[in-house]
């Protein structure tokens, strides 16, 4: 049976992209309970949560591979193929960084000094807020294509992207403050703990960084 028309329409990658975002969000959202148990020092809980994060990161990876495999060169899309792939790469990096945070926490039994507990909790909240505003932005892509890239929808996404930038900036500020607080305690803690805590905070910050980069990539997509 010949079916030119059925063949002509290629499956849109938008739905899969949305599914990828959902998985990435699920994965990074687990950072909050993980940091909480890191603060209380519950090793058993930490092990479980790290495993769950790894698992979700792997699932996001599978979706990513699937999208890549189904975007051959001869596709003609409303969004540039390279832009989609770069977007996907950055979005996936969010989950990768979340997993790195988890690995760092699991790697060594590090005690969180009481002066840093509040900072850490605040930092993870702001980082997750950044990811959340990214998710709210990407869920508008469907509208963008429904309206065939109407200016109204583009502007809406644009302002949502600015919101991501704002959140990322705020998380940077918190991260800087946390680092300062950590070095205030440098006499009381062993150097290895300091090294590890620094690394954890930096990696948490890159979760927000990647969320911001994903948003910027979306900006390129709109600005075609």
């Amino acid at each position: 049976m010949r079916n030119v028309i059925a063949k002509l329409f290629h499956k849109s990658p938008f739905e899969a992209l949305h599914n990828h975002m959902i998985k990435v969000k699920e994965c990074s959202d687990l950072l909050k309970p993980l940091i909480e148990s890191f603060i209380t020092g519950d090793r058993k809980l930490i092990d479980e949560q790290v495993k769950a994060i790894s698992n979700l990161e792997h699932k996001a990876d599978i979706i990513k591979k699937n999208i890549r495999e189904h975007l051959p060169y001869h596709l003609f899309m409303s969004i540039n193929r390279a832009d989609i792939l770069r977007f996907l790469h950055e979005e996936d990096a969010i989950a990768d960084s979340a997993e790195d945070v988890a690995k760092l926490i699991e790697m060594r039994e590090t005690k969180v000094p009481s002066g840093l507990k509040e900072d850490l909790a605040e930092l993870v909240n702001k980082v997750l807020e950044t990811v959340d505003s990214l998710k709210r932005t990407t869920s508008n892509i469907k509208l963008l294509s429904q309206s065939s890239f109407a200016k109204k929808e583009e502007e809406k996404i644009s302002s949502l992207i600015q919101n991501i930038d704002k959140k990322e900036f705020e998380s940077d500020v918190i991260q800087q403050k946390a680092a300062k607080d950590l070095f205030l305690l440098e006499k009381k803690i062993d150097p290895v703990s300091i090294l590890l805590l620094m690394k954890i905070m930096k990696e948490l910050g890159s979760v927000a960084d990647h969320a911001q980069n994903t948003g910027s990539q979306l900006r390129c997509i709109i600005a075609r």
Binding site: V4, L8, H10, S12, F14, H74, F76, M77, S78, S145
Partner: peptide, 23 residues
């Protein structure tokens, strides 16, 4: 097929498989 591609050029369709043209 031409008409559908025309809509694609106006960014109206998410993904089209242009290999059909080769066929």
């Amino acid at each position: 097929v031409g008409a559908v591609i025309g809509i694609g050029m106006a960014r109206g369709v998410e993904a089209l498989n242009l290999r059909v043209i080769r066929n």
